[in-house]
């Protein structure tokens, strides 16, 4: 039997093109395996062969999703592939979204099995797990040696037409319900579960609730010309020298900075501490991330009541949801106590 033809999708970093300075590269296709494809080739063994690798910059994909999707799809189409693998993306947000998006598109357009891998908190996981089989990986490339064999094994199963199970194959739950036959009828099972719950016994729900983190929207600001507006960012804008040493990725802290009398964020006095995007533009003019200059003008013109004296900043780059929730619950309280009426949050 001839080998299965596999096409692999990776970003600019894993292709060895470079980091953020190369995140804008358009999709390109290379013959054979590249970067993590070496490990995949070993793990796939005799059954399958990586015939081509598509490389695309994370920013290019994130900022031009429709165009990027089309370009990559066209490249994959030409390869007569039997199987499509993307990543693993670990906890890289844009990469995870790109992997999920292109897998979904390849599956829908070309009808071949697709698989990717990423960390459970990667935003791509939440968006695409319903549509795409995603192997759960660690949060950094240090987990490559575990991630690749698990992904290769799951991908081969998919290619053979077998179903993947969360417990066996390490894939994330898709949340798809399948009909099955049970001896006891529903009312009986429900009462059994209720009795188990009331008596403190373990029970397994048949329909787990997804972990929705939603808040009801606040009412509209009535009179913006009287409102005190605060600026918050995950784009890592800090005073020059990053006095609080906020980490370039996986931040464990945020900063609170006084901008009393500051009318413009200049490159002499401010910079970004973010390690997940090309910092050239933000360092050149930090207002491109945190619009202090415009809000000062509006304050002077009476468009807004005022700009809050402090801005809050952290680095949203692989930063855990738990940390982020922790930061916000602290500074949101301060903002309320300081009489702030509305917040503009900017993200890169």
């Amino acid at each position: 039997m001839s080998k299965l033809r596999v096409v692999h999708y990776i970003n600019q970093f894993f292709a060895g093109l470079g980091g953020e300075e190369k995140a804008d590269v358009k999709p390109e296709i290379r013959e054979g395996k590249v970067g993590p494809g070496m490990a995949f080739a070993a793990a796939l063994g005799q059954e399958a062969e990586i015939v081509a690798t598509v490389v695309c910059g994370d920013s290019f994909y994130g900022e031009n999703m429709e165009e990027a999707r089309k370009l990559v799809l066209d490249m994959v189409k030409g390869q007569k592939a039997h199987l499509f693998i993307a990543g693993p993306a670990f906890n890289a947000g844009r990469y995870g979204v790109a992997c999920g998006d292109i897998c979904k598109a390849v599956s829908e357009e070309l009808g071949i099995p697709v698989l990717t891998g990423m960390y459970i908190e990667n935003p791509g996981a939440d968006i695409y797990r319903k549509h795409v089989s995603i192997v759960q990986t660690g949060n950094s490339a240090a987990d490559m040696r575990n991630a690749v064999p698990a992904m290769a094994k799951a991908a081969l199963k998919l290619a053979r037409g077998e179903d993947l199970k969360a417990s066996e194959d390490g894939v994330m739950e898709k949340g798809i319900r399948k009909n099955m036959y049970r001896e006891a009828r529903g009312s009986q099972r429900a009462v059994d579960m209720l009795i188990a719950k009331l008596s403190g016994q373990p029970f397994e729900t048949e329909y787990p609730m997804p972990d929705f983190d939603r808040v009801p929207p606040n009412p509209a600001v009535e009179d913006i010309s009287k409102a005190k507006i605060a600026l918050v960012t995950s784009g890592g804008i800090v005073p020059k020298g990053n006095p609080d040493n906020i980490e370039a990725s996986s931040a464990t802290k945020y900063g609170k900075y006084d901008i009393d009398g500051v009318t413009d964020l200049t490159s002499d006095a401010y910079q970004t501490a973010h390690g997940g995007y090309d910092p050239v533009y933000a360092n050149d003019d930090p207002d491109r991330v945190l619009p202090v200059d415009v809000l000062r003008d509006m304050e002077k013109e009476g468009v807004i009541g005022g700009l809050h004296r402090y801005f809050y900043s952290t680095v949203g780059n692989g930063t855990s949801v738990a940390n982020s929730v922790g930061f916000a619950s602290k500074f949101a309280k301060e903002l309320k106590e300081d009489g702030v009426d509305a917040v503009i949050l900017t993200s890169t």
């Binding site: 994130g62 900022e63 947000g93 844009r94 979204v97 935003p123 939440d126 968006i127 983190d213 939603r214 808040v215 009801p216 929207p217 606040n218 509305a342 917040v343 503009i344 949050l345 900017t346 993200s347 890169t348």
Partner: peptide, 17 residues
């Protein structure tokens, strides 16, 4: 709060209103 961001699907996932 208003969220100004480039990758809107991420903002929708994390729950900005």
């Amino acid at each position: 709060m208003v969220h100004i961001c480039t990758v809107v699907p991420i903002s929708l996932t994390v729950g900005a209103n």
